[in-house]
Design a protein around this nucleic acid. Structure first.
Lengths: 189, 189
DNA sequence: GTCTATACGCGGATAGAC
DNA sequence: GTCTATCCGCGTATAGAC
């Protein structure tokens, strides 16, 4: 990617490091080591560490929106698309076992830090919530679409948390299977 | 509590602060302010911050064991006891909305820090897993008791994470109701 | 046991040369 | 745009008086 600016490299590296080691635990030095720039150079691109966090959240928002667009293209039925959401747990299984869910662990950390960016980070959850809600509505569950969306979101969060703690492969597979059955059970025939 | 030693006071304060603000974000000064001792005095009672963490984890283990003993006394059937577990989400609803689950958020943080105490903190999850497993076995689900235990644990973790992010009262109530129905559905009649 | 004083490194942030 | 040099506060930890 020759079109990648230094700023983009910083945001990419920060995105990964914030996920792997947490926002607070990631220092400018850590990011600088990855991007191969000096610490002083950060302040040409960002005013503060919080501004890097903002950029990372916005990148994650954009990434997830693109992912959902892909799901919409590939999945013809709302079932297929919801299934794509569930499958994240399998596709990203290894990362989740190591570091948990990128969204859930960020919102949890920012809540404890009482950080200004809490609301923006929650936007990531809201994105999935609204998207799932739309899919369940298309599925015909107009009355309880949002409830179902929140339920599925919660299930996947719980699986990520325990998969991270227990490092258990079979557990993820088990739960994904149960979620598939659940999806069938809420799909009007 | 006149029998409370300074050490106990430190562990109590650390327990609360680690929960509210996270382990890394809690400094000796923060704890000292609550306990009303000087920073230097910590090192008479503990060799390092990590030793305080160990003590906090052990305290949490003891607290949860006591809680389960209470559930065993109060609940005559395994259903009742599992119901007590589910009810944590309601009883501690306000704290969970603010700070998430004390166990889930600690294990997540320690995983990101790659901290030595990860295994000990996971012991908290294992305690609940084993206890729930025993209850499901008593319920007659000998074949899949551990699966059911993990499933319920995951559900409650997911609810805690989303309740924390969305600050939604109705959501917790909804999910608790669904978990009750689920419990009925897995109870042999 | 508890205190004060202090060491020491790291983290975020700034100034200014190139 | 990127660098080096530097500031400053905070955090853990230590030494030693009381």
């Amino acid at each position: 990617m020759s079109s990648m600016t230094t700023r983009d490299h910083i945001v990419d590296a920060a995105d990964l490091l914030f996920y792997q080691h947490g926002f607070e635990h990631t220092s400018f030095s850590d990011i600088a080591d990855v991007v191969n720039i000096s610490r002083g150079n950060f302040y040409y691109h960002f005013k503060s560490k919080d501004e890097i966090l903002d950029a990372v959240i916005n990148k994650r928002l954009a990434d997830r929106r693109m992912m959902m667009e892909q799901w919409e293209i590939q999945g013809k039925t709302p079932q297929d698309r919801i299934q794509s959401f569930i499958n994240i747990l399998v596709v990203n299984g290894d990362k989740i076992k190591r570091y948990g869910c990128p969204i859930g662990t960020l919102t949890s950390e920012l809540a404890k830090l009482n950080h200004n960016a809490q609301a923006e980070a929650n936007g990531l959850f809201m994105l999935f919530r609204a998207w799932l809600c739309r899919q369940f509505t298309l599925l015909g569950r107009t009355a309880d679409a949002d409830e179902l969306a929140m339920h599925l979101l919660a299930r996947s969060q719980g699986v990520a948390t325990l998969a991270n703690a227990f490092q258990d492969d079979k557990f993820i597979a088990q739960e994904v299977k149960m979620m598939c059955n659940w999806l069938k059970s809420v799909t009007p025939s």
